[in-house]
Each structure stands twice: as C-alpha cells, then as structure tokens.
Design a protein around this nucleic acid. Sequence first.
DNA 1: CGATCTTACGGGATTCGTAAACATA
DNA 2: TATGTTTACGAATCCCGTAAGATCG
Lengths: 303, 303
Amino acid sequence: MNITLKQVRAFVAVARTQSFTEACAQVYLSQPALSIAIKNLEEEVGGALLSRTTRAIALTPEGEEFYPVAQRMLMEWDVALEDLQQRFALNRGRVMLAAMPSFASSMLPNIIRDYRQLYPNVSVTVNDVIAEDVVDMVRNGVVELGITFDPGRSEDLSFSPLFDDRFVAVVSPLDELAELKVIPWELLLKGDFIALQRPSSIRLLIENKLRQLGLQVAPEFETHQLATIGRMVATGLGVSAVPSLCLRQMRELGAECRELNTPVMSRQVGIVTRRRYPLSTAAQSLQDIVQRSAMDLTEHIQL
Amino acid sequence: MNITLKQVRAFVAVARTQSFTEACAQVYLSQPALSIAIKNLEEEVGGALLSRTTRAIALTPEGEEFYPVAQRMLMEWDVALEDLQQRFALNRGRVMLAAMPSFASSMLPNIIRDYRQLYPNVSVTVNDVIAEDVVDMVRNGVVELGITFDPGRSEDLSFSPLFDDRFVAVVSPLDELAELKVIPWELLLKGDFIALQRPSSIRLLIENKLRQLGLQVAPEFETHQLATIGRMVATGLGVSAVPSLCLRQMRELGAECRELNTPVMSRQVGIVTRRRYPLSTAAQSLQDIVQRSAMDLTEHIQL
DNA sequence: CGATCTTACGGGATTCGTAAACATA
DNA sequence: TATGTTTACGAATCCCGTAAGATCG
C-alpha cells in the first residue's frame, strides 16, 4: 500500500472543485499529471473514487465516504507539521528553567527580557528554587536548563560555567568597616554575624570553607531570607557575607558591600543540563542568550 | 512543504526502535536511505527530531512532542485507506435497495441469498415498498437501486429492463375456467372480480388497459393485499388478475393461475438507478447479480 | 577497534509536462 | 463543435542501494 499525500491532496482538490482543470492550480500540477495521480490512487485503493464524464465530475459513494475523512486527515497533518515548524522557528513553544534565587533575582530578569524580545511567542517558565532543587529538577527532566553552582562531575548532568560568584562582605554604611576597600574574613567575623539558616547552601559553604581555615562562625542572628539580612545589616544589627550576585539587592536595602578576601571565596555559577538529552531549540537558544549575557551582566557582581 | 508519509513512517520506526539499523526492516529501506529520509524530514520541518550519537538515539523535545501525534495520524491514515480497500473488495459496506412487493416477495429472496453468499460482509437493506415509492427512493438517493416497473423516460433516472411481467388470471381450482390453458380477458371478467384497492399501481394498470379495449372492471370485492386476493379466489369467492410475479404466491394460497390474453397485458420490470450518480461497487455487483439472476428466475413467472 | 550513522555516487523507477487523441453534451 | 479528460512519450527529478567515510564508546 503505497499511497501518497499528494494523491490524496489531488483527490480532495478535485472533489472540492468538481473539476480536474480547476484542481490543477490548487495542487500545482498539469492536467495530465493530476489525472494520473488520481488514477494511481484509485488503483491502489482498488476502485473508483470519482466518476468522470468529460462534462461533469461526481464522487462515487466510496469517494463520498472518503472525502470528508481525507479532508480532516490532511488538515490534521498540516496542523501538526506547521506546529513543528513553528516550534523550530521559535514562533511557539515553552522553555522551563530553574535558577537559584540569587541568580533569579539578579541577572535573570534582564536575560528573560532579552529572550522574550527576540522570541515573544515562546513562553518561559522560571522556577526560582534553592540550588539543590535546581539540580534535581534538571536531573528529573522537570526543566531543561538549570542555573546554579557547579554540582560537580556527574554521570547524567553536564555543567557549563558562566562566571565566578564570590562572597562579599555586607556591612552597615555607618560601620567603620565600610571605609575599607577590602575586608579580610577575620575582621568581618569580629562583628555580630548574621547568617542564613542551616539548610541553606550559602550558610553551609561559608561554614565549611572557614572551618578549613581554622575560623569559625558564631552567628548572632539567623534568618532564612537574604532580604532580611540586608535590612538587619542596614539597621546596624551586625555584618554578613553574601554571594556577589546579591550585592545589588543589599545596596537597595541600604547595606554596603565590600570585597572579602583571604581567602577569596568563590564558586562557579553555570548552566546545568541533562546529558544525553538534547535540548529543544527553544532551550538551546535561551542557553545561548544566557551565555552571551553572562559577559555583559558581570557588572551586577562588580562593586 | 513537501513531506512524505514514508518519511514520517521512518521517523516513527526509528523513534520506536531507538535505532536506525532496526528501523530499516520495519520500513523496508537500507540504512542510508533511512538516514536520508530522516534528514530530509528534519530539513523540511526546520529542525532536529532525533539526536543521534553513534551509540544511542534520543528524541529531541520536539521529536518527543511529534512522535505520538505522528503515530496516531499514521494509524488513522492506514485505517481509512484499509476501510476503502475493504469496501472495494466487498469485504465491507452496505447496499440499500428498494423493490416493489411483488418482486421483493418472489425473486428477490433468492437473489439476496446468492449475493450474501458471495459477499457475506456486505450488508443489504431491502425496502419493500410500492412501485411509486421505489422510484422516489431512487430519485432522492435513499437507495442506490430500485426494482420496479419502467418509470418511463426521465431526466434523472435510468432504467435497465430485466423481464416482462404479464398479468395472469387467478381462478379457483374448482372453477370451470381452471380447465382452460388460456383465459381471455372477456371470459375472466364474467366472474366476480376481486381487485386491489385504488391507489395500487396494479389496479390502475388493469383499469387503464381494459378501458382502452372497451372493457370495464366492476370489482365485486376490494382488498389491499395480494395474499387476501389469493385466499378469496381459492375459497371460490371470485376471480382476479395479478402480475405473473405473484403466481407462486397464488398457488401457495390455493388459487390457480392461467395465461391471460387478448391482449397480453405486460409491463417491463427492471432496475432503476439515478443518472449521473455512479453506483458503489457493492451496488454495482448487486445489480450484476440481479441481471444475471433474471434469466434463471424466469421460472418464477412461468406457469 | 567495533558498532552505527552519514556522505558519495551510479542505476532505476517514478513522475512531470507537452502534444495529440478521445469522449460527451 | 467545444470543452474537458485521458493516453503517449521524452525528460527531469527523485529515491534507492552499494560502497566508502566519519564518529563515538
């Protein structure tokens, strides 16, 4: 059974126009070619679909039966293929991505804006979740792209770095530390330290790194929102250390940020994707934009 | 947009087997041909549907989206075309026909039996209606075939004759007329005449024909069923004249039939179809069988 | 190194369009 | 006779299969 779409299109065109001659134009075929196409179709299905006299065309009962079916099938066919084309042309579709909050609230809005400007018909879903969940969502295929810290070598995940996110000191503008360009960790920790609560990756990172250096943190206050830290520091309750991605936010809350060193504590931020699972064209293009933007948006993390 | 069914079949086969090599067998293609088919499909839709490394095949998100759609469409396609083929092969379908009662109750059963024996999967619907309604049903397209008297030349109807149905005399076996081989009309009308009620075409035909000959009918009894006439004649209530198609029935009811002449009153019985509306294959084949059977079944109308 | 997909290329089938024949109102 | 469909035939196209090449695990 070797029946062609072209043949069925030809049949439908003839059935609709009730004329071979007129149908020619609709299927971009010469009269004889059309005639043969119909003839072949009829041979393959085993009987006549059209009854032709030189004057008038009539559908046979079988043709009458087949006509609406063929019409519907061709329509579905065209719709499905056009949908595919639209997706590839980025005139339709959806990208799901997950980003850790510090990134989601700093660089991401600009990126999404640029992306939407380029592809206004592709909808973007952002999941603003903690770093570990970003990785899980990528691993489980819930999202195609994740933006978070390097999750380390992994069998099923791929990581492509964007930039280094380092910790910066957060101090009150009134604090004397604010007059330093660079604040050493030891000095910072002399103040009352305001930390995020335990399950936070930021908190854990700070503790682990400092322990390796023989330092230790004794938080005076704990909270679970960066915004709260900013406010508390601004109010003069104490000091803190946050990823440089958050320094805009800290400034907006009235806190000052300073470089923090010995050591410079940093982690790579990048894009996590699933290995062996190709990206959709939409996700691919979003990833491209994220990577290109990473350059331009480093201003976000410069003091 | 020139996408082939073959290409989509190829895609579905690869997606199902997760392998080009295995898919080859399912689409009866060599590896390279399959590869090119997929490549062409991808080019036409504008992007990759499959992600191939030499070791493993994965669907892209777009391919993942398209796969079930393509599967369903191919299935519908195959079902629709197979249905058509089945119809043409007379392994499926329906014929609607109308026949006047005298034919429907005499020759038709044998014909239908033969037809069903040949094509047990084609269902036959018989409308047993009066001669005028047979013509109407054909004209309106309610049935494809009608079997009745010649409706006369008509713009939209076509008539192909089967045989001549003549009137025969119906008499009681005890009647002295029963001893004649041939009964003249004049003699028959001397008895008490039992007629069908007025709207009947048989009644009208008798009256009209006889009037042309200067004879006239004065029915002693009227009924609207041939069976009643048979019974009444058998009982000795009177005589009648019926189409030869009914003579079996008359005999079975206990009445005797004899040739009736001067004149031999007859009308052509045949198949009525719609002009310019082709018959279905099923109807065509039924018509053929009716025409072939007409020869053999003339025994029904022989005394 | 081996399995698997892709590219290259020659042969064959299909299909197209022009021109002529054919059929019906 | 005129309109519209089918047949005939040469030409171009497309598609397939074999063989060689590339790539990843």
